[in-house]
Amino acid sequence: MSLYALCFILFSIGLYCLLVKRNLVKKIIGLGIAEYAVNLFFILLGFKENAEAPILDKYTASQNFVDPLPQALILTSIVIGLGVTAVMVAISVRIYEKYRTFDIREIRRLKG
């Protein structure tokens, strides 16, 4: 249970960083942290103490496997995360070219 709590704290740190930090690069790092917390949460769901990797062949002795499904899902989720991060980095580079700053307080030509 404490693992889940730590995972949730990690998620909160990431979310805090994403929403409160004023530097675009720090926001991107915050997104990364929050994303990994969610990925970790999925892996924890399939985790079992002392279990083996779920490969079924004649050498596996026990029937005690971890759940392979969350691992497969997280593989997809990591790739999606990579895509989102790439778009975010690309856009912040273009923002830097236009505004000459990463500070969100100076990037406000739009009225809220």
Binding site: V38, V84, M88, I91, S92, I95, I107, R109, L110
Partner: peptide, 27 residues
Amino acid sequence: EAEELEASFKYLVLGNVADLLILFAIG
């Protein structure tokens, strides 16, 4: 243009928070 990039970044941040919450709920 400057405004378009800014709007897109704003949407990116909030859209990603939404995605993370949805993924968390699925979990």
